[in-house]
């Protein structure tokens, strides 16, 4: 039991550091909220609306509502989609087995003149090894 307690107890140094961090975080939040005028409703109520009172004016027309609540979000959505898809579309050099291959053959470390070498190649009686596979 003692051994278990020993292993799970937090070292006092770590505990102190954690408390200091928490205190600093709370202090920073409090300062930020006070600076924003969170404690004083009058300081943030720039439009002058009364609490619980409907604002005066005609409100939005149908067109404005569609623009603000329909097209606006749609535009943002499309922008994000474009940011996600465009890089992949620009450099989509990834091989896809189903799409085939229409590039000219490349021989790395091959003979200087592959066409002529293949033309004059004689398999001879060498016993070659290796392996094959398909996918």
């Amino acid at each position: 039991m003692r051994a278990v307690d020993d292993t799970i107890s937090t070292p006092s140094g770590g505990l102190l550091a954690g408390r200091v961090r928490a205190t600093l975080a709370i202090a920073a939040t409090a300062v930020a909220l006070t600076a924003c005028g969170g404690g004083d409703p009058a300081a943030t109520n720039h439009l002058g609306f009364g609490n619980g009172v409907a604002p005066e004016g005609d409100g939005l027309t149908t067109l404005q509502a569609v623009l603000v609540y329909g097209l606006g979000p749609l535009a943002i959505l499309l922008l994000i989609a474009a940011v996600v898809w465009l890089p992949g579309m620009v450099r989509s050099s990834r091989y896809r087995p189903a799409r085939g291959w229409n590039a000219a053959p490349l021989w790395f470390g091959g003979p200087a003149d592959p066409a002529a070498a293949v033309e004059s190649a004689r398999t001879g009686d060498l016993v070659r090894g290796g392996a094959s596979g398909s996918w």
């Binding site: 087995p97 085939g100 291959w101 070659r128 090894g129 094959s132 596979g133 398909s134």
Partner: peptide
Amino acid sequence: APGQRRVEVVTGP
């Protein structure tokens, strides 16, 4: 052969 989906390793004697 990416289009034919075949791969071959050939080793000399």
